[in-house]
Amino acid sequence: MIGVRAVQKVSSTRAFAKVAPHVIPALDRAVHRLTRGKVLLSAQLLPGVILTATGARSGRPRRTPLACMPEEGGGSWILVGSNFGRTGHPAWTANLLAHPDAEISWKGTDIPVTAVLLAGEERAAVWKTLLTFWPPYAAYQERVEREIRLFRITPRPSA
Rank of each mutant, 00 (worst) to 15 (best):
L97E: 11
L27R: 11
L118V: 03
T54W: 00
Q44G: 14
G75H: 03
G74Q: 06
T132A: 15
V126G: 07
A15L: 15
G59S: 03
L66D: 12
P157I: 03
R33F: 11
N95G: 02
K38W: 04
T54Y: 02
N83K: 10
G37R: 01
K107I: 01
A115C: 04
A43P: 08
V49A: 11
A159K: 13
E145Y: 01
G48K: 02
L96C: 03
V19Q: 13
H89S: 06
L45T: 15
R149Y: 06
V113K: 05
V39T: 06
V116A: 03
A94L: 13
L97R: 14
P100N: 01
P21F: 01
S42M: 15
R143K: 06
R123L: 04
P65A: 07
A15P: 00
R86E: 13
W134M: 01
Q8T: 07
P135Q: 11
K18R: 15
F16K: 04
P90H: 06
S82D: 08
E103T: 08
E147F: 06
T154D: 08
A159L: 12
L51S: 06
R123S: 08
E142W: 08
M69C: 07
P155M: 01
T52F: 03
P155Q: 11
G48L: 04
A138Q: 15
D28I: 02
T87M: 09
A6D: 15
I50P: 09
E147P: 10
G55L: 05
L150Y: 05
A124C: 05
R5T: 15
D101R: 06
R60W: 01
R36A: 10
G74F: 04
A119T: 14
P65G: 09
K107L: 08
A15I: 15
R63K: 15
A159Y: 11
N95M: 01
H22G: 12
V10Y: 12
I104N: 01
P155S: 12
D101C: 00
P157G: 14
H22N: 13
R57Q: 13
A20E: 07
A159W: 13
T93H: 09
P90Y: 06
V39N: 02
T154E: 13
L51K: 12
F16V: 04
C68E: 10
L45S: 13
A119R: 15
V7R: 13
H89T: 10
L51E: 06
Y137N: 03
V4N: 11
E147M: 10
L66P: 12
W77D: 04
R156I: 06
A17C: 00
D28W: 05
R149S: 07
A67T: 10
L34F: 09
H22T: 05
I148V: 14
A30K: 15
P70A: 08
W134I: 00
I148S: 05
T129N: 11
T35I: 02
E145S: 15
G88H: 13
P136V: 11
S76F: 06
E71P: 05
D110P: 00
V39D: 00
A115P: 05
D28R: 08
T129A: 13
T132C: 07
G120Y: 11
L117Y: 09
V23L: 13
S58R: 04
P112T: 03
A98N: 03
I148K: 07
T132Y: 06
I24V: 15
G74D: 14
I50M: 14
W134C: 06
I153L: 14
F133C: 02
P47M: 07
R14L: 05
R156Y: 01
R86Q: 14
H99G: 00
G85P: 10
R86G: 08
A56M: 04
V31F: 02
